[in-house]
Amino acid sequence: MATLKEVQSKIVSVKKTKQITSAMKMVATSRLRGSQNAMEAFKPYASKFSEVLGSIAGKSGEDVSPLLISKDEVKKVAVLLCTSDRGLCGGFNINLINKAVKMLKSELQGKEVSFVCYGKKGRDWAKKQGNPIDAEYIGIMGGNVDFSVASGSGQALIDSFLEGDVDEVYLIYSDFQGMAKQIPTVKQILPIPSLDEIVEQEDTAPVDDAGTFLPEHICEPSSDALLGKMLPKNIFIQIYDALLQTSTSEHAARMRAMENATKACEDIVDELQTIFNKTRQAGITSDLMDIVGGAEALKG
């Protein structure tokens, strides 16, 4: 059986670990609030944008933008992989990376795949596997993501798509559905799947706040030209949204992981405390036996 001193120092060290994990949990909680606010602030822009886009997309044909046209033969694929910069967030990054692995083994088998990595964990993985990395963005995840990151990398992708360097682009990110639910998701962003999806059930006529129907927009320049300008922006919006969602998911995942770790620490401390008490009691008992034995011997 371990000595009293050993058990005691174990208890102290587990308690220290517990302090760290519970502090990390609190940090993650406050960061989570920050990125949820950023998501909240982004919502009006995104929803208004898709509303306007939907209203003009309904009027246009499929051939308004080269971004809509899928290539006859898909050889080169770019995958945007959103992960976190830091670990200690449970299976968060592994889940996202597994999604990429699964894609590489199925749909993307035999194709030339290159990665654009947002976040250090995904970058490290891609590097280790020897996958080519077109671009990497480290130090942006989890903090205040700037829109220029999304528009800059989005523009680069659009350029290489138009030049034929890339035939398809996929986005892997973590969809934030709630504190306990973050789902790794794959989304095709280039070629743009179809205008029908953008239009959804949106009515093409604009509606004012009171719900009365208004005449169709007068567009300046033409609605096709406007759509041509808006579609690339819509890609930036999707990337930005993915970055925000992944950041938020990261904090939520870390919060849960740290909460579990804190609980596990408590359990271990309880167990160790029992061992400590037992050891102490055993010591006292054996001391008593010695004393009693000694007394008996003297008497005899």
Binding site: V52, P206, P215, I218, E220
Partner: peptide, 19 residues
């Protein structure tokens, strides 16, 4: 500053969309 020229709007302007 609309892309096709500066524009001005008051209440009751017709529905209009521009870059």
């Amino acid at each position: 500053p609309g892309s096709e020229g500066e524009f001005c709007a008051l209440k009751g302007h017709t529905t209009f969309l521009t870059s």
